[in-house]
Design a protein around this nucleic acid. Structure first.
Lengths: 259, 259
DNA sequence: AAACCTCATCCGTAATATTGGGATAGGGTC
DNA sequence: GACCCTATCCCAATATTACGGATGAGGTTT
């Protein structure tokens, strides 16, 4: 049930401690649940919980009802700020929201998934369920596809990974790949309700000083607010917005360092 | 150099792993620095770094130049959302900023410190250095004092702790304590440039369904924007704002469960 | 251009820290 | 009041970790 690649030898205790953290994040609130989820013995799990609690990685009321702790909040924001991307993108994305009134996201890739890093809700339409810190499939979201534009060799792999549950018809897969080629040329992508029925978005890639894709931005709305012609109109807007963020990150043109 | 209370037995490896995380958060970017900071051996530290990197708690470019990783971002936001406070407070705080144009903070207490949980920058004055995820002394900030209002027995202790470097005159300490008594009665506190010269703020306590203080809010600005009469005018405003957040958390009146 | 230095990475064994079952204690429920 | 479930503590067997040294790569100085 626990799909960790290869627990490197010599760190079993740390690995188990991190498993405990994951278990609590996944909703385990007491010792028994943590044991079941992780497969660790009562006694051992209890000891790990104790330390994590003491250090603030977990919070508990006298040993029961565990939840993620304030230290994770501290380190999480610290991690966020160690990258310049969220900071430089923020004001630019706020302008975008003010002008177009739809919800805007900033995301990076992590471990084969989209990781939302910032979200600014638009002033109209339904509130989206997404939040900073959430993960989504790469190949099923506009913002995820924008993160993949430089790596054609991963397109098929990611598509298959994200459609493992219900394998689609081969022509769907072919259409995805051919669309990706078009998206790659224009530097922007579309999401036509692939991930969430009724939700459409336009996304674009953000690059750093060496030309590598380090993030992506998207603007999303429910389909009444996102007819095709509006999406087409937003393509150059998102492209320009992403470019201005990229430039603040030192992106100078079209160089793409592959060394 | 490492001031951890008592590393509980049976979890040395996990404790060291967390120390490594702290070291990286503190600016250690390579193996040597981590070793120096934590006192762990080269080989051992390397192994821990490897696992933390693999699990996304750290990010590295082929083993050098470590920084905090995306998993911490994920878990950090997760920790944030496990409490209802930031979510219910957000829209109310946004209204506050729109009306008064100064910077607003939301904070909780953690480990004897203020932990900022949200920040909305005002539209005027200098940008404040604070950020969500940062820590500050309890006794030297308005928002920290608001977190302490229910616990008179900790006032002196916290004051002494936060002034250990340069011990102030006894009358300063006495004045602090007498002001705290006044603040406790009105449910709001002031910060008269005690922590940051030139920065003043008005803060108020947020309570949950059982009447316990679970958070605090503050509005801050540089002193030209915060003359005494404006501060006085903001006291009832902050009190009401905090109360409306408290009510959304189930706070029903004045009960204060001390069981 | 070659030698030198520093750093990350890997390995093997000695020794240590960890494991997990069982016993204890504290709450809550029937 | 008895019972059941849970968290907590303890201890000996054991598997795990720690650490010094060897290897290799990268960069700098002579």
């Amino acid at each position: 049930m626990n799909g960790h690649a290869v627990p490197p030898p010599g760190t079993q205790t740390l690995a188990r401690g991190l498993d405990v953290l994951r278990a609590v994040a996944g909703g385990a609130t007491d010792l028994k649940a943590v044991c079941l989820e992780t497969g660790i013995g009562r006694s051992t799990a209890h000891r790990l919980l104790q330390l994590l609690d003491q250090r603030g990685y977990l919070r508990s009321s006298q040993g029961v009802d565990y939840s993620l702790g304030p230290t994770l909040i501290e380190l999480g924001f610290h991690a966020l700020y160690q990258s310049p991307v969220p900071t430089v993108a923020r004001p630019i994305l706020e302008q975008l929201v003010n002008k177009y009134h739809d919800t805007v996201h900033l995301a990076v890739e992590d471990g084969g998934k989209v990781l939302y890093v910032d979200k600014i809700s638009g002033s109209r339409g339904a509130e989206m369920r997404s939040r900073a810190g959430y993960r989504m499939p790469l190949s099923r979201t506009g913002i995820g596809k924008a993160l993949l534009l430089d790596e054609p060799e991963r397109w098929a792999e990611m598509f298959d990974e994200d459609h493992a549950e219900a394998v689609p018809a081969p022509e769907i897969r072919a259409k995805f790949l051919s669309r990706m080629r078009v998206y790659a040329q224009q530097g922007t992508t579309l999401d036509l309700e692939e991930n969430e029925p009724g939700i459409r978005c336009v996304a674009a890639s953000v690059r750093n000083g060496s030309g590598a894709i380090v993030a992506a931005i998207s603007i999303s709305a429910t389909n009444p607010y996102m007819p095709m012609d509006r999406m087409r109109a937003l393509v150059p807007v998102m492209h320009q917005t992403a470019l201005s963020i990229s430039k603040k990150l030192g992106y100078s043109g079209t160089l793409r360092d592959m060394s």
